[in-house]
Design a protein around this nucleic acid. Sequence first.
DNA 1: CATGAATGAGACTTCATTCAT
DNA 2: GATGAATGAAGTCTCATTCAT
Lengths: 216, 216, 216, 216
Amino acid sequence: MQYSILDLYKKDILENKTMTAKCKRILETSIDLFSKNGYANTSTSEIAKIAGVAEGTIFKHFGTKENLLLSSIMPFIFDYVLPEIRMDFEDVEIKDIYPDFKSFIHELIYERFSFMSENYKVAHILLSEVLYREELRVKIVDGLKSNIMDSFDKVLNYFKSQNIIKDVPNGLIVRTILSNIGGYVILKYILNPNGNYDDDKELKYIEKLIVNAFSL
Amino acid sequence: MQYSILDLYKKDILENKTMTAKCKRILETSIDLFSKNGYANTSTSEIAKIAGVAEGTIFKHFGTKENLLLSSIMPFIFDYVLPEIRMDFEDVEIKDIYPDFKSFIHELIYERFSFMSENYKVAHILLSEVLYREELRVKIVDGLKSNIMDSFDKVLNYFKSQNIIKDVPNGLIVRTILSNIGGYVILKYILNPNGNYDDDKELKYIEKLIVNAFSL
Amino acid sequence: MQYSILDLYKKDILENKTMTAKCKRILETSIDLFSKNGYANTSTSEIAKIAGVAEGTIFKHFGTKENLLLSSIMPFIFDYVLPEIRMDFEDVEIKDIYPDFKSFIHELIYERFSFMSENYKVAHILLSEVLYREELRVKIVDGLKSNIMDSFDKVLNYFKSQNIIKDVPNGLIVRTILSNIGGYVILKYILNPNGNYDDDKELKYIEKLIVNAFSL
Amino acid sequence: MQYSILDLYKKDILENKTMTAKCKRILETSIDLFSKNGYANTSTSEIAKIAGVAEGTIFKHFGTKENLLLSSIMPFIFDYVLPEIRMDFEDVEIKDIYPDFKSFIHELIYERFSFMSENYKVAHILLSEVLYREELRVKIVDGLKSNIMDSFDKVLNYFKSQNIIKDVPNGLIVRTILSNIGGYVILKYILNPNGNYDDDKELKYIEKLIVNAFSL
DNA sequence: CATGAATGAGACTTCATTCAT
DNA sequence: GATGAATGAAGTCTCATTCAT
């Protein structure tokens, strides 16, 4: 049986209960190769050979190479870009969870970064593909806007209302956070993967930068 | 006659004096299509058709598709990544040119951004290709390190010696600058090209962020 | 699955048990066309059309056109030029097998000629390609030297020791044999393929020539 | 002006009086490259580059690549294969010129061999092309038959009538001569060009072989 | 005469995809 | 479910040839 993208996603999330070993190997190999050489420079025959399956098996499971790509990055997108974030904060709750702006930024940065670190291969693929795939781009950008910005807005507006942070556009704050984490991740995992990095120190720099920049 | 990469670069810089009209059209079309659809998704026959030349003409001039890519991005690399930056500052000169840290950051940000804006198509291609091309990556990273960091070090160390900025690694400062400009450029030109942007306002935010972050 | 050259050779020898029908047709067609028009003047699309397969099939099996050529001629080379000749003659055995020089030459000429006759197409290809392919030439010449000359030397030296044949260089004897057989084969199969030939009569001439020339 | 094949031939023969320097360089380069790499593997652009002329110049002079090939080998064919041999021997004259069979064979072998040696490059090309070019083959074979065999017949029949040589087909005699010279030339110039050869010794072997074989 | 930019047909090759087993 | 032989469209690249200068 062929998996739909959503099936794939769900199956992955649900501990791959129904995914056969071969199917998993295909997916893992795809992520490896797409991440190392790029989607367009990876042939399905290469994936098959390295995954140790017949070429036909890939298509039995994923239908097309395109769908194999989506199956590789969808779980990441669902988890990272479009997570189901609780959006019904009350101000009082925000205060409990994030006693100050710094604690909010701290959690945000570490959470985002650790997710990226665990999935840097898929992130690599996604970055590459988003550059030329309108559909993907729109999906991501819209997802970010609706899913993430909404809950961000809640929190940031709360801090603004408490005169804790400056009255700058929320988008700018988010962009600044993502730019600096992204910059570090790209440097560490792509541009100079052989360097020595002290994540904690680097993230603290970023944290301080953000807090400094927007705190009142 | 076939152009070497360096010829190409020089010719491009020297206002394409010796480049035939067809050759120029090929290069322009390549940049357009590579930037729009990606190198791997652009066929030489498509380039030929749109440029209004025979496919053979492309190969007469550029030899291989690979070389066409390099010819498209080399001028950008030479100008942006590996410019000949004056490196023989005396402290007194730095003081004259950049009376304070802010003026240094200001010039830097505006200069880098305007260059990016003028060459966002090539930058798009370069970003995409650098993700999977070791050679290109190494060339860029090494170039940045040797050509740019050296002169940056001079200026930043001067500011540090004057107790004008904090004693943080110069690499961090540079990364912060590039991450934030890059984040904005990617948002504006790739992720959300239909949005309205007030460059001046955005760059001022970035400038303030940097100055705030590292000034003592 | 793609065959290595040695696989090809073995498979061919072992009655092509594992070679698919299409694969065999490709090989046969290649030999026909290479032999008729030359390697360089035969396109893979022509081979595909005549063999009744898709062009891709050729490359699935043989990888490159070059390898298709090698696969066409390798079995011949292994059998004709580099056969495993028993080399552990004792003088007494030689006497048994070849009671006189004539019987040796007789067997040699008929055996070589019949092999050539059965494989004149491949021989045609080989002759043509050896003219411009250093690697092939070296392989053949070295193979002839080491595999064939060694066992020839044994026998010829024996005849010399018995004062049966003249004391001329063995290389000269071998060259004379090959030149005269080759001359006849080229005349019959290439230069004047429409003539009427009485192989037996012609070979007897050659046999007598050789025996006459070198017998004491 | 474009040369016809015959013009070319004549011009060459007539000491290239009207052939421009460029034209000569083209022809020399062609022979070099055709002989080294084969006609099909030599591009006109390569010839042009090495000869130091523009590609167009080749076609101005020779029209097509095919004609360039013919212009390269035609003089050789005219001189070697189709020479104007005097055919009006009287028996008494033969006796004067060739007092015995050996002197006839001697002159023949040395004359043919020296011609081959001087023109081994063209001979290489001719051998290669004759393998797949019907027209060329027919021209050569017919030429040999009519021009050469006729005069050979005269001489050989004379020797037969005098009971000097055996009554074997003249074709066999000629083939034997050519095979053995050809075998040596191919060995020396193509198969093992790095070997040391004593032409005189080798030719004497061949001479003795022929004389022995056919003398009564 | 000579040039060399330009051509376009056709070469070799790759690869996602299908399907009989 | 798994296989892998087979496909054919499309890709990159070569090259003999033309023609305006």
